[in-house]
Design a protein around this nucleic acid. Sequence first.
DNA 1: GAGGAATATGCAACTGAGTTGCATATTTTT
DNA 2: AAAAATATGCAACTCAGTTGCATATTCCTC
Lengths: 153, 153
Amino acid sequence: MTPPPQDEFLDAAKRGRGADKARQMLKVAQLYCTEARIAILQVLMQAARPLRQDQIAGQLTERAMSKVTVYRTLESLIEVGLVHRAFTYQRAWYFELADHCTEHQCHPHFTCTNCGVTHCLMDVLLPLAKISQKGFVVDRQQVRLEGLCPACA
Amino acid sequence: MTPPPQDEFLDAAKRGRGADKARQMLKVAQLYCTEARIAILQVLMQAARPLRQDQIAGQLTERAMSKVTVYRTLESLIEVGLVHRAFTYQRAWYFELADHCTEHQCHPHFTCTNCGVTHCLMDVLLPLAKISQKGFVVDRQQVRLEGLCPACA
DNA sequence: GAGGAATATGCAACTGAGTTGCATATTTTT
DNA sequence: AAAAATATGCAACTCAGTTGCATATTCCTC
Ligand SMILES: [Mn+2]
Ligand SMILES: [Mn+2]
Ligand SMILES: [Zn+2]
Ligand SMILES: [Zn+2]
């Protein structure tokens, strides 16, 4: 009886392989390798969608963590470009790894107005708005979609 | 000495011409014609950009209004499609009239990360993300841009 | 490895945009 | 004018996110 691949992956992450990846990312970014940063990076690496602070905290299996620390940890990861704020929904920020981003634009996010679930549209890329001739310098273009997801349509 | 056109327009709005337009919009929408709705619609009709609740309240010259009423008024105007929530910035919603919208998409908004001012890009329209073949039903596509505005670049 | 500087964490208290219940006021309908 | 329907104001509340400060952890140097 071999365990299913997901469990194997999660197990590996807990045992340290995911932690090593996180440590390396932090070293490159010149951030202290703290328990909080390693754990939160691992949670975000395994996440299929952006997560709120409380969802991230809820995934921390090893040790509970103050929400202040979660917020400050995310802030530090954002500052060095490892994480970004994907969008807000019902007054709360959703965070995700910043790896799937192109220079000025990340993938779009679709939020279902019926079930509230958000999907990352990894393979959808809209053209950048051409507004530089008007004197604007675009740093980031963000696309949000709302409607019904396949399960709710 | 004729007053400049802006003042003339503002004056006309105060005197009732803008109010008549608002009354008509409310009648069509089957909403009670209340002081609050007429006043807030007029403020939004004259606004060059989306406004927060406190900015709207600050523009109400005739009579002060409880912030609860401003929020509930906006909510009712949103329900009938006259107003929409344009975006959030620093945890606050910005509201605007829902007239420049096409069926599934409004114009993009550019927020300057230096001065904080938002510009409505009325003449910019990105294509709709083609995700219906994946089973998604898109109700609304929203585009946000960040960077430096012409004044700050 | 020990010591010290730099940085991160937890706690408790705070902030502020937005919401809710309920009594009262306004608008519309009859 | 009276009744029914709806809107408003007040005070109290919610809750995601922030701040000050004492303590703990990480890293760097010797
Ligand atoms: Mn995503
Ligand atoms: Mn706009
Ligand atoms: Zn759904
Ligand atoms: Zn600017």
